[in-house]
Every structure is written in C-alpha cells, then in structure tokens.
Design a protein around this nucleic acid. Sequence first.
RNA 1: CGGGGCGUAGCGCAGUCUGGUUAGCGCACCUGCUUUGGGAGCAGGGGGUCGAAGGUUCAAAUCCUUUCGCCCCGACCA
Length: 479
Amino acid sequence: MARNITPRSENYSQWYLDVIKAAELADYAPVRGCMVIRPTGYAIWEQIQHYMDEAYKKTGHVNAYFPLLIPYSFFNKEAEHVEGFAPEVATVTHAGGEELEEPYAIRPTSETIIGYMYSKWVHSWRDLPVLINQWCNVMRWEKRSRLFLRTSEFLWQEGHTAHATAEEAREETLKMLEVYRQVIEDNLALPIICGEKTEGERFPGAVNTYTCEAMMSDTKALQAGTSHFLGQNFAKAFEIKYQSKDGGVEFCWTTSWGTSTRLIGAIIMTHSDDDGLILPPRVATTKVVIVPISQDEHIADDILLPKAKELAAKLNEELGGLCVAVDTRFDMRPGDRFFTHIQKGVPLRIELGEKEINAGKARCVRRDTGEAADVAFDALCPTVKELLNNIQDNLYNRAKKFRLEHTNRANSYDELKAILEEKGGFVEAYFGGTPDDERLIKEETGATPRCIPLTEANNIGKCILTGKEGPLTIFAKAY
RNA sequence: CGGGGCGUAGCGCAGUCUGGUUAGCGCACCUGCUUUGGGAGCAGGGGGUCGAAGGUUCAAAUCCUUUCGCCCCGACCA
C-alpha cells in the first residue's frame, strides 16, 4: 500500500495527481496553467513521438516547422475557426519595448499560418498532395487546467495536408485516424473507439471531425486523437489554389490531424493502480530493473553487482536498447528501492540476492499483476521478453474488458439518464439531434456525444431525444 | 468567467476568531547506531519572518485596505 498516493476509490482526481507526483512525471510551473514535464514524463512523450513519427514517415509525411506567432488577422479569415478559438487565444501585443501594430496570436493550432504558406507553395496539380507534419507546442488559455490533460501550453503533433480532390482528402483523414488507432492500441495499450464527431463537437472550421475515444479507469471518456476533413474551408480562406490538368483553377481540399501530450494522461489513467504508475512495456524507457539485494557489502560488490550487470547487458542486447537498469542503491533498504520502481511504473522488476545466485535463478516480479516467478539465468532473456509481451497484452486486454463492462445501451432518453447516473461509462444510443439537443443532453446528464463509431456508421435508428432518424452514437462524460 | 477554499520550512498542516517573550507539529532532509526480500526504529541536527504592499498599534502570522497567486466545483476546450 503506497502511503503517498490517495486511493483511487477515495478521490480519483487526487489519485491521478498523486501518481504523477510519485512517478515524478510532471510538476506545476510558476506560470498559470502550465506544467513542467520532468525527465521521466518527457521520456514517455519521446516514446510516443518515436512510434507516431515512424508511422507518419511510412505514410509519406515529412516534418517541418512553422512559427509560434501567427498574425492575429489570420484567424478572422475563417469565421467558424475564429469563433471557436478566440476565447482561448493568447496574444503578444508588445515586443522590443514597443506596442505592435498588429498583435500576434500564440498558436493554438496552425491551420491558418500553414494555409497561408500552402497558398504560396501550391500552384499546380503537380505540387499536390502536400503532406506535412509539425511537432511543436501550442497554447490555449485554459480557465481550468489539469496536468497532461489540459494545460495552457502543451506539446503535440499537427499534420496538415492539401489534396487535389475531396475523395483523396477524405481518404487521408481516415487513413491518419487509422494510423492513430494502430499506434495507440499497439504501443500505448489503450483500446479506443474510432468514430465521427457530432456537429456540436466538431473542430471549428472542419467539415467532418473524427476522433479516437478512450475510456479512463473512472469510466469517463478521453479524446486521444483527432483527424479533420476541412473541405475547402481553409483553402478558400487562404486561397490555396492549383491549376488542374485541364487548365482550370481549383481550390485544394485540406485535412489536419493531431495528438498531444494528453496521451500521457490517458496512459496514466488507463493502466495505473493505487501503488502508482503502470507503464506498458512499449512505452517505458526502463522496461526492466534489476535490484541486487544484500546486507553484506562484499557479496553485493563481488558477486551480486557483477551478475546484475552481466544479466543487464544480455537483456539489453536481447531487447535491443538501453532499457534495463541496475539499481545500485545499497544504502537504501530493499522495500524502499522496490517502491520507487513500483511507483515509476517499471514493467518488470528482477530481484537478485544470495538466494537467487545459489539457486541459479532470478526472481521476476510483474508490475501489472504483482506476480513473481523464479527464472533460471539461462532462460532469463527469452522469458523476460515473453513476460514483457504478456504485460503489454494484459494491459490492453484488461483495459478493453473494463470498457466493455462499462458500456451499455439506452433505448430511451430516460434510460440514457438512468445509466449515466447509476453506472456512468459509455452509453450507446441512436441520436439524430442538433447541437442544441447536444447541449440539452449535456445540461441534463453531464454527458456529451463522444462519437459515432465508424463500425456503426450504417446503424441507423430512432433518436432517443427527437424521434428522428439518427446513427448509433456513444455518449459519456468526458475529460 | 461565476461559486467555494487556501497561501506559515521541500511537502502537508496547527496557530489567526480572543494581537504580546527565541513561530510550532508530522513527513521529507542531514549525522550516528541498530535494522534490511513490499515504504524500519531510536537519538541528535539543519531549515521558515508567516504570498506581496500599505495601514492601525507600544507590539501584527493574528486586526483593516489593496494586490498577486494557487487549488476545488461549474460553464468552455486536445
């Protein structure tokens, strides 16, 4: 039992913050609504970046960088866009000791400035498609922030593409949604539901918005990634035009898609327990920690440490990389040492004492289940590899099981209200209402339509609120 | 931005209502001894001028005014 972490059942928000603190992932910065991502937390982001970036490169995208500051007037060019973002845009009004003639917005997202640049770069159908991604920080002034989930400044990736046809842009939008699904499920072990956002939840300026929705361990939903089909809205606002093969001048069709450091929050809230953080092996930079244990200095130095280092070297070779650490803190008691690794979410702990040396075995303890197994040194490499795979799978499977157990069907509005109040979780229901109807539901139940699952796109029924025809939609309270 | 709460040691708090000698406590930290396989025990020790500014008073953490910041609950959002 961790003494520095509030039990999850007692206070979920506090538990979440305690886990972050105990694992040293992040800390509050002396700037309103901002946080410092500490090395352990940043390492998770680097892992995410690694998997994501690799996937984008494979789908033909390239990285570039656009300015942090955007002429404020750019936002006014797309009506819905400015309306959607105005409340949370921070601006720079002074520089060099003087007031600027036109304020700069600190980017909350880069559709506008990238649209402006694309209009300069795209002239011919031969210039298309443009497939650019940017890794950067953005700022959205938040009234209320929570570490990783909602901070005024956050790190993300935003892909921006321009295409000759609507079909191709739509295809791109869904392709990247699928890339998100794969990376998030396979590496972060977060089971997600891909679907389309309802009108009320759509990105300001988009024609269609798609989303990856995950369920946290308090049964609330969290949007883990979004992909937008922007139609010609931004192309028209910024005059991204090209001359087609037949000589006519056409507006491009654009998309944008993003995932952020919020994913770290999702990982924390999906997998961790009352003892602290639990990281899926593919996310953890330290996948295995070897803890030599002895009260005897000579045994520790002459026998245990060399053996630990030898095993670590072999494991690193087997697993490919520096992901096995040796804990040499002999001045701490074993229990203390174990706990630091438990709280940091290290997937596998290997305990090595005289007992183990004499038996020719190492004691392997899983973080996800707490199960311990004694493994012969000869079999350690393949067994550890297998254990890590099992842990990865187990985390995904148990999260998915949890989601299924907390997903229900509502056949009427009363049923929706009752389920949300009594059980929470995801509720499936036919919905064919307007943004006003969405607002009403949110007011009365606290829940919003999270998405219309792609797999249910043709599943049409009678809307529980309006009685009109509508697709099967997932409702939930959300972060 | 509305409602509530809080700023006293690194963290968590007491003290504030009923101003008064060197501002306390727990955890953490440092030293020593004993311990050591899921967070040890004892002893000793270092560290704060009480968010900031102004005012009242012989005297302010405590009373008054102003101000800054943070947290929680709502409305808005990756």
